[in-house]
């Protein structure tokens, strides 16, 4: 939609006006995330730019909030808990999810719609309802306030993402490849790991990344299902924001933004690779 040379002044005005509006909306989307990055280097315990920061004086900036994050016990404990919970939950959802996605993409699956609806449901049900149900049920069976309980709950939340990404990858999967492999004498396991798995790996990995970020970012479920011993990074941030708001949160937030940029790049690269492998886009 480039502007034709015969455009009237009104059209010109609208063309540029529209772009300015869109620019403002993009600004609205991205500015809040970017603004916390400079604020996290604030030398003072303020949440706003000090005059020194605006004048770009070197001493107005400092790493003290990062230092606090790295030395404070409760932040370190929270980080450690997140690191312990998320990978295990991801592993569970990827293992079960991939297997089920392979099953779901077979040509004849009885009750496919009902099964799909059940497997996707953790993504649809509002988190507060899942949290309430899990809190009631897990305290009945003694899992409330335990590491296993939180891991299982997070794995359930991650499952729909794995199912969706892996089944999407399997849509373009050429079934004759597995038949050829079976024809050449490979057993089902060998066929899966040597032929099918390498082709759907990008989908599995990006599903796993979604599951990981879901668990790593999740706070509602862990607030209810976990106890103080399972305090994760988002939980610590939530408490920090609700009770004593400390600028260390901004340092943590900046670190998390960096992580999400890395993840976004990875997923985008995987998507391109997957499309290339399945010949869906030229190069």
């Amino acid at each position: 939609m480039s502007l034709p040379s015969y455009a009237s002044p009104g059209e010109r005005l609208w063309y540029y006006g529209f772009r300015v509006i869109c620019g403002l909306i993009f600004f609205f989307l991205i500015a809040p995330i970017l603004i916390i990055i400079p604020l996290s280097f604030n030398a003072e315990n303020f949440f706003t730019f000090t005059p020194g920061m605006l004048a770009l004086e070197a001493e107005a900036y400092s790493l003290k909030h990062y230092r606090d994050f790295l030395t404070n016990d409760s932040w370190q404990q929270a980080l450690w808990n997140s690191v312990k919970i998320a990978p295990l939950a991801t592993l569970l959802s990827v293992a079960f999810g991939t297997l089920a996605a392979v099953g779901l993409s077979q040509p004849h699956v009885p009750f496919r719609r009902a099964i799909m609806a059940m497997l996707i449901s953790p993504m649809i049900v509002p988190l507060i309802i899942s949290a309430a149900g899990m809190y009631f049920f897990y305290s009945r069976i003694g899992l409330q306030g335990s590491y296993i309980g939180v891991v299982l709950a997070h794995a359930a939340l991650g499952v729909p993402f794995v199912i969706i990404t892996v089944t999407a990858t399997l849509v373009g999967f050429d079934r004759s490849l597995t038949r050829a492999s079976a024809n050449l004498g490979a057993g089902p396991m060998r066929t899966f790991f040597k032929v099918q798995m390498p082709l759907i790996l990008p989908g599995v990995v990006s599903g796993g990344l979604f599951a990981f970020i879901t668990s790593f970012d999740e706070v509602v479920i862990v607030l209810f299902v976990g106890s103080a011993a399972q305090k994760t990074l988002p939980w610590q941030m939530f408490i920090g924001l609700r009770e004593q708001i400390s600028p260390t949160i901004l340092a943590v937030a900046t670190i998390l933004v960096t992580i999400s940029i890395l993840l976004l790049t990875t997923v985008e690269m995987l998507r391109r690779r997957s499309e290339k492998m399945r010949g869906m886009s030229p190069g």
Partner: peptide
């Protein structure tokens, strides 16, 4: 075979998610 592949996850979701609801 398809159901056998789906069953572990279905069971997992029923215990960890559907039962709580």
């Amino acid at each position: 075979r398809a159901l056998a592949l789906i069953a572990p996850l279905l069971l997992f979701i029923i215990v960890t998610f559907i039962a709580p609801i």
